[in-house]
Design a protein around this nucleic acid. Structure first.
Length: 349
RNA sequence: GGCCCAUUCGUCUAGUGGCCUAGGACACCGCCCUCUCACGGCGGCGGCACGGGUUCGAAUCCCGUAUGGGCCUCCA
């Protein structure tokens, strides 16, 4: 029997990092077994729905490069399936109808169908895991207490719950439940902070299926961001940083995509700043070297100029300041290579 | 409070009774490289939660305690 797993978020907006871990774990579980992962939106509770919540989740998954092979299924579309499931449980005397019209599991009174006929999460999730042919449920350990109950519901529906694997949750660095207060808790936030998707993906892959709760390790995530940026092809980095591909060599030292974008800005639109008088001699020397060189420099040619300036004791900081308007930024030679002769001379005039 | 799960350096982990004086990665601290940033090189700091068993031998098995977490909704 081929493996079939599902990722089943509630449409409450951008994915929480812990949910993303579940998605990645399911994706990997399926991939490693040439199985199928389907996407299901668990939206049985309309009061919890958030406008744009589903779109945000789809956007996050796409951004992270997590695809799905079947679905998307929405529980709000599947009322008939749950009603039929409830009937089956009723017929088998595994459930009973309450005075108010709701349907409850006979054994412990857990509500399966509300009085208005809509399914609760417990019924919907079990009916779907059975009905959609799920073979393995991989979810966060916050669901662990549900396991015995869901197994009972599965039997009440005449089936058997798939194998269930629980993984530890991602907590804040302080060991408390990850929340908005910590920052960096949702994919949207991490994205805005400039983390490349491949870094987040790598972090989640690294975590695997933690047996116990883990603390979010921002240092590790930052490191992975640096590695991910270093590994990005030029065109990809250019797009991710919103910069022209010519300046990409100058973006390599950036630690985040936000910083990469700032580096690009330094080159295209530097802030005007006043330079100290002592800088003049270095800038003049630079002009002498730059003038006879080609309109555009190769990185090697740019390095040769930097080396020459350095050899004569030039003030490279002043040159950096003149060219980018900042004391820190991309490698000098990369800046020179990204600037035309005219642009460079204008800034050092 | 009840039930459940977990517990190896700051963090993530390797470790399934002898190979463990507990290995690695990231972080941190020095030094080197260096126009800043990032990368890289070298070195350092630092851990089996505690107490009892079992065993010739325990990070590894059992029990207890502690700590952390999860859940206790007609939420997911």
């Amino acid at each position: 029997m081929s493996v079939r797993v599902r990722f089943a978020p509630s449409p409450t907006g951008s994915l929480h990092l812990g949910n993303a871990l579940t998605a990645v774990a399911n994706r990997r579980f399926a991939d490693e077994r040439r199985g199928v992962m389907l996407l299901r939106i668990d939206d049985t509770d309309p009061s919890r729905a958030v406008t744009g919540g589903e779109e945000a989740i789809l956007g996050d998954l796409g951004w992270l490069g997590i695809g799905f092979d079947d679905g998307l299924f929405r529980q709000s579309d599947r009322g008939a399936v749950y009603a039929e499931a409830a009937d089956r449980a009723l017929a088998a005397s595994a459930a009973e109808r309450d005075d108010d019209g709701s349907v409850r599991l006979a054994r412990d009174g857990t509500t399966l169908l509300r009085a208005d006929g809509t399914a609760t999460y417990q019924l919907a999730t079990v009916a779907d895991d059975l009905g959609l042919g799920i073979t393995h449920v991989i979810r966060g350990s916050d669901h662990r207490p549900n396991l015995p109950l869901q197994q009972r519901i599965a039997r009440a529906l005449g089936g058997e719950l798939p194998d269930v694997i629980h993984h530890g949750l991602i907590l804040g660095a302080d060991g408390k439940k990850l929340s908005k207060r910590h920052g960096h808790s949702s994919i949207a936030e991490l994205r805005a902070e400039g983390f490349p998707p491949s870094a987040i993906r790598a972090y989640l892959e690294e975590l695997g299926l933690p047996e116990h709760d883990v603390h979010l390790d921002l240092s590790r995530l930052r490191r992975l961001a640096v590695d991910a940026i270093a590994a990005m092809p030029d065109d990809e980095l250019a797009e991710a940083a919103g910069a022209p591909v010519e300046v990409v060599p100058a973006l390599r030292g950036a630690r985040s995509l936000v910083e990469a974008h700032e580096y690009a800005q330094l080159i295209s639109e530097p802030e005007q700043i006043a330079l100290p008088e002592e800088a003049r001699v270095t800038l003049d020397r630079f002009a002498e070297l730059r003038l006879p060189a080609p309109e555009w420099l190769s990185h090697d040619e740019a390095r040769a100029i930097v080396r020459e300036l350095k050899a004569v004791g030039g003030d490279l900081r002043a040159l950096r300041l003149a060219l980018t308007g900042a004391e820190r930024g991309p490698e000098l030679a990369a800046v020179l290579a990204a600037l035309s002769r005219d642009a460079a001379l204008a800034r050092t005039a």
